[in-house]
Design a protein around this nucleic acid. Sequence first.
DNA 1: GACCCGCTTTTGTCTATACAAATAGATACA
DNA 2: TGTATCTATTTGTATAGACAAAAGCGGGTC
Lengths: 247, 247
Amino acid sequence: MVSIHRRIFEDIEARIMSGAWPPGHRIPFEHELVQEYQCSRMTVNKALSALAERGMIIRRRKVGSFVAARQIDRTVMDIQDISTEAELAGHDHSYRILMRKIETLDAVTATQLGEPTGAEILRLHCLHAVDGKPNALERRIIMLAMVPSARTEGFASVPPGKWLLDMVPWSKARHVIRAVSADAATARLLETERGDACLTLIRQTWQNSRTVTYVEIIHPGDRFQFAGDFHPTERGVRDQLPRRSAS
Amino acid sequence: MVSIHRRIFEDIEARIMSGAWPPGHRIPFEHELVQEYQCSRMTVNKALSALAERGMIIRRRKVGSFVAARQIDRTVMDIQDISTEAELAGHDHSYRILMRKIETLDAVTATQLGEPTGAEILRLHCLHAVDGKPNALERRIIMLAMVPSARTEGFASVPPGKWLLDMVPWSKARHVIRAVSADAATARLLETERGDACLTLIRQTWQNSRTVTYVEIIHPGDRFQFAGDFHPTERGVRDQLPRRSAS
DNA sequence: GACCCGCTTTTGTCTATACAAATAGATACA
DNA sequence: TGTATCTATTTGTATAGACAAAAGCGGGTC
């Protein structure tokens, strides 16, 4: 037994997804749907508001509701913690700390991070392995002002990524994915050849516009990829005017 | 002037984002918020339902509402059409068709795509340049059964990616990002060195579980990257039980 | 024509009320 | 002890009615 607003939502969603109602098509007015489904306007309103919130339709007073334009240009990527990912896939994960050093931010890195030069940081290098084979090299900077407890944490039993996630509240994250060639040191650690293509994920995490941590995770290109699905139901909200076509 | 349900939503969101209400923390009951905001329960319910829909909180009857566990593992990536992307950034975009051939699916590719061997396809190779410099090599397969009008389209003025987007309804897309080393032919076309790291985007688009198009877009690694932001407000919905801690 | 005013339509918000569904916890019972 | 049942609490859904806000449209005036 599904609720009425859910049924209205799904009926309309199905018509949009199938292409029966193309972008720009006018959705029936609330009072029309009230007639069709024999329910109150609040119920219809709830269904249409939910569709609008998901970006499937655009609503405008006095004008009506319209199927939103398609967007293929946004996709939701699963970018997980390495240990979590390995566990989910049923693989064995291990890691070891290669370097752990407290220092101050040099000018170049400071600019790159948008933080003041001289700020105290913890620099961590860490090698991850999945099923015994090197899978990722993690190079991390933790802002000690934001995470004072990192000063005494040895990360012996919990990897730094996971530890930080549980420890520190954050409000924004930015990811960048790059392809780079392995330099000699990286190749040696990842047990691959110098010059081989590597997939690098860079993640910077903020809390209230102050950096919490910055990390580069370098994966061997022959053992790693990122994947993401896009369903039109997840389309992002974007300002767009309804087309005046097909009604 | 913001609406009441919006204000409740934002107040709670702010407390979650700041870390004042950590994961597992119990949100006040609806009747408590009714008291606090001096409004009806429907209004409170709307705010809390919206928070639940966004995955910020978990609600359970007779138990209450709780701050959901943090998820950093999903990010929204902008993966745009090459020409659109260049235009947005104020650059000049051009392309030329390297190959355009109608053939039938061989067994290997058919399996890879999950389509029947022997299906008629249009195979397209296309080189994109931004500000005169090669920026991407596009290798595309279009299923002619799904897009019959592609048979006669020359793609002289509209690049295939854009043309398809406007032409064909689709219901699902899958993206994969990989790092690969350039082979000799690719390197020559992209004006880079053989063996250089390249960032490859693979996109397969379906309509009702039938493939519409499959494309590999190979970017030179020194001229390209993907970026995506994650805001906790956009966190995905996932089944999780409330923790019994902090109340 | 350009501009302003008021009418009408459509969506947005809110209330007070009602009952249903889920379920934790208490109670009765074998 | 374990199990079935009852009860109280909380969220989920729905209703009818009301007014507000946005905006297209037409009419009137200059």
